[in-house]
């Protein structure tokens, strides 16, 4: 059974589009008798056959008046389309003969500028005007209890390493895990000082180690094939197997070395590390502590940026829910004095 989102020991780092305030835009409405709706809709259809930017707004709002009477407010157009007087004139020109109807003077009101993408955004804007919103949770991240336990265990292990680190390096730790079987693929820690290399961040080292283990795997695979080749004189069936790696296959797969894998990090990765994870097609990122120059939520949202070709899910504040724990562990996790923190 899936664990309710409110009980996760972390929170999803949403894209700007999913977390932004929806803003408002000004539109004209007019109130009419429900029986005259068709006539007014005919006017709207003729006047603005293609209205853009209002797709998420319903055309009509029902108003229950105290005496039990019903009127309808009808959304006409954005106030940016024309002035109030011109709109009144157009309505009056149309409002003759068969098309005659009673209406209130046009009035400007605010409706949401953007369409809501989730329930939180929907709840925050629905008082303005009736909004079209179909909740679709099929693509939302889901975790069952055992997955939450695995995530907690991996992160707790890294936090402990961080608290115990006495190496003179920054206390940043990373671990790549295959979530399909909870196997640890590789680990990495920060080695900037020891290596005298300013780019040897924990995440970069961890990605290097994933590549290294993959190179080993392929080599031993090749060795096995070669062994079968030497046996092949006795067993002609095996000799037909191709022991040379297919170059095209290699080219195809390289960039996707971390596909489907999760990475855990004690700190929100810097721009370099975040983009390295994107290049490696990481599946999901879990980090404990946000960083001042972090690129998965703080300065940038590389995982959900519109023009970048690969998107992945990011969860921050893992095991930081409990503030007393956050306070207890944070001093160990400092990457510098206030305002001077270096990249993670």
């Amino acid at each position: 059974m899936n664990v309710d989102k409110s009980l996760w020991p972390f929170q999803q780092v949403l894209s700007d589009e999913e977390s932004r305030d929806l803003g408002t835009q000004s539109v004209y409405i007019t109130d009419i008798d429900p029986k005259k709706t068709t006539i007014l809709l005919k006017f709207i259809q003729r006047q603005w056959p293609q209205q853009q930017g209002l797709e998420h707004c319903k055309r009509i709002r029902k108003n229950l008046l105290p005496e039990g009477r019903i009127t309808l407010s009808v959304l006409l157009c954005p106030t940016s389309a024309m002035g109030e007087e011109e709109l009144e004139r157009l309505l009056n020109e149309f409002n003759v003969g068969d098309n005659a109807f009673d209406r209130s003077p046009v009035q400007a009101i605010s409706v949401p500028l953007y369409a809501p993408l989730n329930r939180t955004q929907f709840e925050s804007c629905k008082h303005l005007w009736p909004i079209i919103y179909r909740e679709d949770t099929r693509l939302d991240p889901k975790f069952n209890e055992s997955q939450i336990n695995d995530i907690t265990t991996h992160m707790q292990a890294l936090i402990t390493k961080s608290q115990n680190s006495l190496s003179g390096e920054l206390p940043v730790f990373a671990r790549v895990v295959d979530p399909s079987n909870n196997r640890i693929i590789a680990e990495g820690s920060d080695t900037r000082a020891a290596d005298k290399h300013p780019l040897h961040h924990a995440v970069m080292n961890c990605i290097d180690n994933v590549a290294l283990s993959e190179r080993d795997r392929r080599q031993s695979h090749k060795r096995k094939l070669n062994q079968t080749d030497s046996l092949s004189e006795e067993d002609p069936d095996v000799s037909s197997r191709d022991s040379t790696p297919n170059l095209e296959e290699t080219v195809e797969k390289v960039a996707y070395l971390c596909t489907g894998f999760d990475i855990y990090t004690t700190h929100e990765p810097c721009t370099m590390c975040s983009m390295a994870l994107l290049h490696s097609r990481i599946g999901r990122v879990f980090y404990h502590k946000p960083s001042r120059t972090g690129a998965l939520g703080t300065v940038y949202k590389i995982h959900s940026h519109k023009s970048l070709n690969h998107h992945f899910k990011v969860f921050g504040d893992v095991l930081r829910r409990d503030l007393s724990q956050a306070e207890a562990t944070d001093p160990y996790l400092q990457l510098g004095n206030d305002g001077n923190e270096v990249d993670a």
């Binding site: 990605i207 590549a211 080219v251 960039a255 070395l257 390295a276 490696s280």
Partner: peptide, 21 residues
């Protein structure tokens, strides 16, 4: 060198930076 290294982060700049350092 991403393909040769099986590592998508091995861009030209990184190859040269590592050599210099």
């Amino acid at each position: 060198r991403p393909n040769a290294s099986l590592n998508a982060t091995r861009h030209a700049e990184f190859e040269a930076i590592d050599e210099i350092l």
